[in-house]
């Protein structure tokens, strides 16, 4: 079991800048995939106490979509993208170039589209982090789940609960013309990777 990591201002700042690069990279990749420019809002990065997470996503019993993947290799982290169900429908419409309100149900095609969002975002994000750190990072295939917010977030809580009381939240907004979808990304680097990051900082 790894020991707890102190999130000092400097570490948060490092994670914030890595994340911003990562999200930029992800959106660029996405635009390439869609064939037209997708924009995104300036990411909002903050440290959130574990116990407050369910409230941020609209209450723990609300139905939501979670897209989860892990980073493996030289840097271990978990990435969870979580969207209230309505937002997930909007994102599917945006991705599949349908009028807003077309998607009312998540079938296998819609789930696969959302999985691809997680896959692309996660991969581009990790590539940016890997470049910045000079380390090799690989994403696992994404898992898409539709359930209560609290239950989805238990994945994060259960895997970090013994180590850290806080996790990093990145909120950003996908925009396509006048349509935009706010998404939350939870990035949970494991304690050893954070320590490595801290040590790399100190050496600089």
């Amino acid at each position: 079991m790894s020991s707890a990591v102190e999130f000092d201002e400097r570490l948060i700042e490092t994670l914030r800048s890595l994340t911003t690069i990562g999200i930029h990279n992800a959106v660029r990749g996405f635009s390439g995939l869609l064939g037209h420019k997708l924009e995104f809002g300036e990411p909002n990065v903050k440290l959130v106490p574990l116990t407050e997470i369910p409230m941020i996503v609209g209450g723990p019993e609300n139905e939501a979509v979670g897209i989860y993947l892990r980073a493996e290799g030289d840097f271990h982290a978990q990435i969870m993208m979580i969207l209230p169900l309505e937002k997930a429908f909007q994102l599917v419409d945006l991705l599949m170039e349908q009028p807003e309100g077309s998607t009312t149900f998540l079938g296998s095609l819609e789930r696969s589209a959302l999985g691809e969002v997680g896959n692309m975002t996660g991969t581009f994000f990790m590539n940016a982090v890997a470049n910045a750190l000079g380390r090799e990072i690989r994403p696992t295939p994404p898992a898409v789940m539709v359930d209560m917010v609290g239950a989805i977030l238990d994945i994060i809580v259960a895997t970090t609960g013994g180590v850290s009381d806080h996790v990093l939240l990145i909120q950003t907004c996908f925009k396509d013309g006048s349509r935009s979808v706010l998404t939350d990304f939870w990035v949970i680097p494991d304690a050893q990777s954070l320590q490595a990051l801290q040590q790399a900082e100190k050496r600089e």
């Binding site: 892990r70 295939p141 994404p142 898992a143 238990d154 994945i155 259960a158 895997t159």
Partner: peptide, 14 residues
């Protein structure tokens, strides 16, 4: 067990 995707489910069966 919330994670049912192949390769992920076994790891954290909290």
């Amino acid at each position: 067990n919330m994670l049912t995707a192949a390769g992920l489910s076994q790891t954290f069966d909290v």
